[in-house]
Design a protein around this nucleic acid. Structure first.
Lengths: 207, 207
DNA sequence: TAGATTGTTAATCGATTAACAATC
DNA sequence: TAGATTGTTAATCGATTAACAATC
């Protein structure tokens, strides 16, 4: 029940998860696709189709149990185990992301911060001392790094990513303005802030 | 030549812009859809279809003039004029975004930082003193604010956005974990970092 | 002119929505 | 049981790709 699921579906899953989390906080026990569709402003059909990519989580005549569905989506999204995260490029954005990961109630654990700037060595950010990037190879021998965050200048991103991939890092959360060229067993999730800002700018024109 | 263009097309435009910018830096004068398609790993057909939503920017037998196309896409994306930006919620992420906007070579100008925390009042971030959110109404009388950045806790985002919308702010770059309910003449661009991270997590499983 | 490459139409593919039988 | 709502198939819609005539 895993491959062949479209990106469009995957993009919507975290949003379902968020809404179900809120329902849960509000003590709602069950919900129908129709009620949820009104809250989320999508069609009930889409909700049912999306969920049925992963299995039948509902019950005819009843709807969906909120707690059960929430947990199932969490499991689908891989939120049942802790992912160790190391971050590369401890500038403003890097520091913010380090703190973000730390305080977000999600199972991601920041275990290392790396930079090339010698002046930063040993500085504490989000409770972790900054190391030099060339120390990563040793660090990697004693720590399992599941995800590398790249908050680096664009020219540094590709070589660093390449090195990390060679050392066995298979997942990247990339904030640099480049498309990383990676073997296809490596997962890359891009956050291109400037592209987001340009889309906003586009949508502002002609109004 | 504006409305009716699909979101999918708009999402791709900033990427074209980035690649054309790089070609320009490398002194490339002309490029065919076929060459560009190989660089960008999309189909040449898609490139031509996308561009022809906005007009015929190429020339048969020649291809596209890089400089011309770059400028045209910049114009389409609304990058020919400066957009004034104010930011609400000067935490870690807010500070990082303030600096990001400042140093990114795009026509967005950070003109005000606002928070509710009295201890932050007057502190300088990215060259700008932090003001209190209740000072915004006055600030807004003497400054044109085109875009509001929301780097606030989720419960604060909606009321603040509502207030700002009432005061005439029509565009929001929203980093809070909520879907803002706004009249349809208001533009909202969401950056949901946690959803991005969950997508990454999903794609890591089953490998 | 001949060759190259666009702009655009037509064909295909995929995603969304509608409909309804299955079933709790 | 009757009513409600899912799971799933079929219909529609939209986006992508292919093909090629237009034209530089």
């Amino acid at each position: 029940m895993d491959k062949g699921i479209s990106k469009a579906v995957i993009r919507r899953m975290p949003r379902y998860y968020r809404y179900l989390g809120e329902l849960l906080e509000n003590g709602v026990e069950r919900i129908s696709s129709n009620e949820l569709s009104k809250m989320m402003k999508v069609t009930a059909s889409q909700i049912r189709q999306d969920l049925n990519n992963f299995g039948g989580f509902g019950q005819q005549g009843y709807g969906y149990n909120v707690r059960f569905l929430y947990d199932e989506i969490g499991r689908i999204l891989g939120l049942t185990e802790i992912h160790n995260v190391a971050l590369f490029g401890v500038g403003n954005l890097g520091q913010a992301i380090a703190n973000y990961v730390r305080f977000e109630k999600l199972p991601f654990k920041m275990i290392g911060l790396f930079d090339v700037d010698k002046k930063k060595k040993g500085q504490i950010v989000s409770g972790i001392p900054i190391m030099m990037i060339d120390e990563f190879e040793d660090f990697n021998k004693t720590h399992r790094v599941d995800i590398a965050v790249l908050t680096l200048p664009k020219d540094a991103a590709m070589p660093v990513a390449q090195k990390l991939a060679d050392l066995g890092v298979h997942a990247f959360w990339n904030f640099a303005h480049v498309d990383l060229e990676m073997p296809k067993d490596v997962v890359v999730e891009n956050v291109h802030l400037s592209e987001s800002l340009m889309q906003l700018s586009y949508n502002m024109t002609g109004r």
